[in-house]
Design a protein around this nucleic acid. Structure first.
Length: 197
DNA sequence: ATGACGATGCACT
DNA sequence: GTGCATCGTCATG
C-alpha cells in the first residue's frame, strides 16, 4: 500500500515517461491510476522495449501498434486473444516502448467495478490485464489517449519508494529471460506471485 | 480468401 | 496445477 501522491501535470507526465521503459515500469508500482473514478494502486506492470522480440513494436509500426510509436505519456490499448482489452503506458527514450499494466489494488469505485466484472472478490477485481480493463471500463476508444487528461487520473507516490520485486514476464514466448515484470512486494493483488517473496 | 497465432481468463482436476 | 474457447490482426497466396 502506497501513499497517494500529487496528480501528474502535463510537463511532469512527459518527463516521467520519457525514460527507460524498465525504470518507468518500476516507478509505476505504487502509483494511483483511475478512469472516471474507478481504479486503485498499480501493483504489477511489465516493461516492453523498442528492440524487444516480445514487444508488439518489434518489427516496426502497423495499424494495431501505431500508438506505441506516439509520444511518451499516452495510452496504448489493444485487443488480446480477440477478447480482452489490455492497457499500456507508452514511454521510453526510443519510440516503440511501453509498460503493460497488469494489476491494481482496487481503491476507488469498487461497486461500479464489481458490477462491471460480475465478481465480489476484490482480490481478483483488477488482477490480470484483461480483468483490469474490464473493471475500469477501458476499451480501444482510449487508444492513444493522453494519460494526464480526463478520464484518466495518474498520481505518483510521494516519499520513499515502495519495495518492488521483479521476475520474468508472463504469457510471452520470446525474450523470456528478461526479468521485466515488476510487482509491489507482498501484494496479494498481483495476477501471479513472484518467486522469492 | 484463408490460416496461424497470441502481452488471457476461466473452468476444471 | 492443466486444458481450451475465442476472434482480431497479420502474413501469405
Amino acid at each position: 500500500m502506497a501513499a497517494q501522491g500529487r496528480s501528474l501535470k502535463s510537463s511532469a507526465c512527459e518527463r516521467f515517461f520519457a525514460r527507460d521503459t524498465t525504470e518507468v515500469a518500476r516507478d509505476l508500482i505504487g502509483a494511483s491510476f483511475e478512469v472516471d473514478g474507478c481504479g486503485g494502486i498499480i501493483v504489477e506492470a511489465e516493461a516492453y522495449g523498442h528492440d524487444d522480440p516480445a514487444s508488439h513494436s518489434y518489427g516496426g509500426t502497423n495499424n494495431r501498434n501505431r500508438s506505441m510509436f506516439g509520444p511518451p505519456g499516452i495510452a496504448y490499448v489493444y485487443r488480446s486473444y480477440g477478447v480482452h482489452w489490455c492497457l499500456n503506458f507508452v514511454c521510453g527514450v526510443h519510440r516503440g516502448c511501453a509498460v503493460l499494466i497488469r494489476a491494481l489494488e482496487p481503491t476507488s469505485g469498487l461497486a461500479h467495478m464489481r458490477k462491471r466484472r460480475g465478481v465480489e472478490n476484490d482480490r481478483r477485481l483488477c488482477s490480470g490485464p484483461g480483468n483490469l480493463t474490464k473493471a475500469l471500463g477501458i476499451t480501444g476508444a482510449l487508444d492513444g489517449w493522453p494519460l494526464d487528461s480526463a478520464p484518466f487520473t495518474l498520481s505518483l507516490p510521494e516519499g520513499p519508494r515502495p519495495a518492488v520485486v521483479a521476475g520474468p514476464r508472463i504469457g510471452i514466448t520470446r525474450a523470456m529471460d528478461l526479468p521485466w515484470r515488476y510487482g509491489l512486494k507482498g501484494s496479494r493483488f498481483v495476477s501471479r506471485g513472484f518467486s522469492g517473496t
